[in-house]
Structure formats: structure tokens, C-alpha cells
């Protein structure tokens, strides 16, 4: 049968920063082909297709972000595979190779990470689950 794609509405203008992305205009409707856990979603919009940030989209059927899982305050251990320096107040800076506890995985690709007493958002694409044998 036909593949039914989910439709999302663009909530803010987005200007592409690399070649596989597409520009978005607030109010546009896009169809989602693939949802990557790192917060980039592959979409098609009229004749264009490419990657866009999930956080710039809301489901057409309702503004609820129902797909986010609940926070897990015990945390899950992850190791950073890339350093990231916080650019905003609510982010956390970590070097490469640090272990951190992830307490909330959000669909937008920014997960809440805890290191000691510090808590903040960190890019999920720079995290790899501890104990998982994957090459990067």
C-alpha cells in the first residue's frame, strides 16, 4: 500500500547551515520521512527534501510533543565522543571521553545530562551509550 508520511507544521524560520539541509518558513507543512535520534529529521516539502531540526516542527494534529519520553532521574550512563562547550546558560560543557548521566532524552537532539552537580543540555549526537560496542 501507499506509504503515509506524518505531516508537521514549521513553527519558525530556519536557514540551512549545510548542504543536506533545507530552508524552512514558519507555517510551511512538511512530510517526515525519517526521524534521527540526533534531532535532525529528513523531510520533504513540495519538490525539496533534506534534513531539518525537529525542534522547528510541531505535529499537525496537535501541539503536544507526545513522543518525548519521561525524564529518568537515575540517569543512564553515556560517554562523550566529542567535546562541546556550552553556548547558552542552560547547557553543559563536557570534554571528549567524559562519562555523564543522561536524565532526559528529547526528540530535538538536546539531552539533559548530569555531571556531578551540574546539569544541562548536551547534543545527543556527541553521546554514546556506555558498554555499547559501536564504532564512531
Amino acid at each position: 500500500g501507499p506509504i503515509i508520511l506524518e505531516t508537521y507544521r514549521v513553527v519558525a524560520d530556519f536557514v540551512k547551515t549545510s548542504k543536506n539541509e533545507i530552508n524552512l518558513h514558519s507555517g510551511d507543512l512538511v512530510e517526515i520521512v525519517e526521524k534521527s535520534q540526533n534531532g535532525w529529521w529528513f523531510c520533504q516539502c513540495e519538490s525539496k527534501h533534506g534534513w531539518v531540526p525537529a525542534s522547528y516542527l510541531e505535529p499537525l494534529d496537535g501541539p503536544e510533543e507526545a513522543e518525548d519520553v519521561e525524564p529518568n532521574y537515575e540517569g543512564e550512563l553515556y560517554i562523550t565522543i566529542n567535546a562541546y562547550k556550552a553556548e547558552q546558560e542552560d547547557e553543559i560543557s563536557l570534554d571528549m571521553g567524559e562519562t555523564t548521566e543522561v536524565i532526559h532524552k528529547l526528540l530535538d537532539g538536546w539531552w539533559v545530562a548530569r555531571k556531578g552537580e551540574e546539569v544541562g543540555y548536551f547534543p545527543s549526537m556527541y553521546l554514546q551509550k556506555c558498554g555499547k560496542k559501536e564504532k564512531y
Binding site: 513553527v11 519558525a12 549545510s18 543536506n20 539541509e21 534521527s36 525542534s55 538536546w110 543540555y121 556527541y126
Partner: peptide, 22 residues
């Protein structure tokens, strides 16, 4: 290929979306 997602983290949610999370 275009099927490969960007190698940089996506931008943080726009202010419109952050308000909803509060």
C-alpha cells in the same frame, strides 16, 4: 549522500517551542 544527516548538532529549539516546554 543527502541521506546522511548533518554532522553538526541541530540548533536549539526556537523561543516559540521553548515556551511550550515550561
Amino acid at each position: 549522500s543527502i541521506k546522511n544527516p548533518p554532522q553538526n548538532p541541530p540548533p536549539r529549539p526556537p523561543p516559540e517551542m521553548r515556551r511550550k516546554r515550561v
